[in-house]
Nucleic acid binder design. Structure first.
Lengths: 227, 227
DNA sequence: ACCTGAACACCGTTCAAGT
DNA sequence: ACCTGAACACCGTTCAAGT
């Protein structure tokens, strides 16, 4: 006879208002956290909110999770599950760009996920899976092991940073944001080069800039590798 | 007769225990915030702590600052004041690296400052000053205006991301951190490339990696510029 | 206009007490 | 071992009231 039975004799909790209170578990907590963090209208998670959604008090979660930072690491790796590492066929170059694009897309699904990718360096199975795929592609490109090892750091950093930067929803080329205002109002006397390049600074779609940036990184990495 | 006199007739607050209560002002608030955020033992700021340090209640700050995010933007640009844009003479290449090094050093003085550089894109006078200097150096390098404009975005992103990543104090090559554990424990069957490159992944000092990364970026940017 | 105390609606974490 | 209510020590922000 199990000690905890959701349909037990007490029967108090079997009201039909809630869809059968889910059992507490590490997975359930991570899943609910991910649900909150990727929710459209809020996008923010908290132990108290998770506890409430799981019909318990905040203290109960500490039986399954050491603290907030451990939960964040779990949620981050869970989110990275959606990153496709071999979406397309084709050259290593095409597959690298596709992988980075999938990566960035997943991180941008939620500002909070993007921010988490900084505070906590991902070390779960999905982070490893992505790193392995990146190393494989760089090896195909002829990059030696040392340069490849350092390069994956730069590539993941680039993806994470790009996602985090655009995480607040403001498009990069938004012509009315505070950035645009600062650039356009920059006095030509004090900042002649910014003034001269103000059009170029605001130009390009997010996609164009992403493609350009990946190209810069790949060229730089290849240039180092063969020297 | 001024309406508010710190040494007025009431005299109650002129006890010698506190060094003459500073007058409330936008600058005083930003200065106190920066002091807290760069403090060794804490490194975290809050409106309530600032208010307390300035001998008032949290509500009083809202007369000078719209909200938390505006304060963060002010603090960030104030912190960027310490970035030296023309520390050394020499080639554009040397000066570029020196500038980026000064930038990253300032951001790493406090984890919170590094994190702020993401959430809020810096648009104050110091951010402009740095951008202007970067454009000038890239122009000397022969990079055209469009490529230079997009390049400064990448360079600042790289600096900010690097600072944020190492902001938690853990050295990049720390052989006992959770990252090292994850890499070393990665099973050779599932992750053959990670396993094979595990030494290289953990190798290099922060400084060596920084130099390497700047070189990758410069090579990539120059390669794009002349195509 | 500037400043305030008090309240509102939240946080993460701890702890003694229950089962 | 798992779970709980209640407390602890915080948050940012609002608001009616004061000067």
């Amino acid at each position: 006879m199990p000690q905890r039975d959701p349909f037990g004799a007490s029967g108090v909790q079997s009201r039909r208002t809630r869809p059968a209170k889910p059992p507490l578990s590490r997975d359930a907590i991570v899943e609910e956290a991910l649900r909150q963090i990727t929710s459209e209208d809020d996008g923010t998670m908290s132990l108290r909110k998770i506890a409430k959604a799981l019909d318990t008090g905040p203290a109960s979660l500490y039986a399954y999770v050491k603290d907030m930072s451990e939960l964040q690491a779990l949620v981050l790796d869970r989110a990275l599950e959606a990153v496709k590492v071999d979406e397309t066929a084709g050259s290593w170059r095409d597959r690298l760009e596709a992988l980075l694009r999938s990566y960035i897309e997943v991180l941008m699904r939620s500002p909070a996920v993007a921010m988490m990718a900084f505070q906590t360096t991902a070390v779960g199975p999905n982070a490893l899976r992505i790193a392995e795929a990146l190393l494989e592609l760089l090896a195909q490109a002829g990059v030696d092991q040392l340069n490849a090892a350092w390069a994956i750091d730069m590539l993941t950093m680039f993806v994470t940073a790009t996602a985090a930067e655009h995480a607040d929803g403001t498009a990069p080329g938004a012509p009315d944001g505070p950035v645009a205002q600062a650039i356009n109002r920059a006095p030509a006397n004090d900042y002649p080069r910014i003034h001269a390049a103000r059009t170029e600074i605001m130009s390009g779609t997010g996609d164009e800039r992403f493609t350009w940036s990946v190209d810069v990184l790949v060229r730089g990495i290849l240039s180092r590798a063969q020297s």
